[in-house]
Amino acid sequence: MTDLGFQLKGSVVTTVLLEIQTLSLESILSQLKEKIDQVPHFFNQAPIIVDLSKIKEDVPLASFESLVNSLNHLGLCVIGWRCNQDDKPTWYADVVTPLLPASKTRSINVPEPVTTSVSPDVVVKTVVEERLVPQSTKVITKPIRSGQQVYAEGDLIILTQVSAGAEVLADGNIHVYGALRGRALAGVKGDVEARIFCKSMEAELVSIAGNFMLTDALQKIIWKEAAQVLLVDDSLEIIPL
């Protein structure tokens, strides 16, 4: 364990992207207000990114700033903005709001609004960016002794035993290539697909996504034999390996 007081991590956050189709601030705001009034909770303090990439003409700095101010006034939080990477407005470095890189994800192409129709000028799109962040597997080679606790963000592999009075936890699966005598909790962040595998089931407690079973119950099913624990329809199944 490090003594560092913090951890730097990458994270993917879902936000609302406001893709501007017109420079008419008034129509944007009135239409947006209508949207907000339908689902006020969704928009309250919602982080929002202003996307100017669909605007063909030059956007004056004043228009952008008043747009940002008005959006914040509506109860949204403008956390950044985007524009065409090759066609940045001349003032792009002067605003406080961070300029974010253009999206790499394929956004659903919404047909350009037909100017003659009464279709809304503002389209609010939610673009969810998903990235696969590989969760590292933690491998432990020494026995986990009574009173010790080990947690893994991904899978946890223990090559020896887990003593009585020890606790092992993982967001993912737990493998114990020895006797499991302590407590093992897999899927602690709610992963119902997580499983526990051990070479000799002698656990004090096994749990998957919060569903647990104690020694007495385990002894009636499998004891001192290789076993796996999984969740089937909200109930724990202990099956031999």
Partner: peptide
Amino acid sequence: VRDSDRILGILQS
């Protein structure tokens, strides 16, 4: 035995 197990954990940590 359990207390010894505990002290073994402390020895290694």
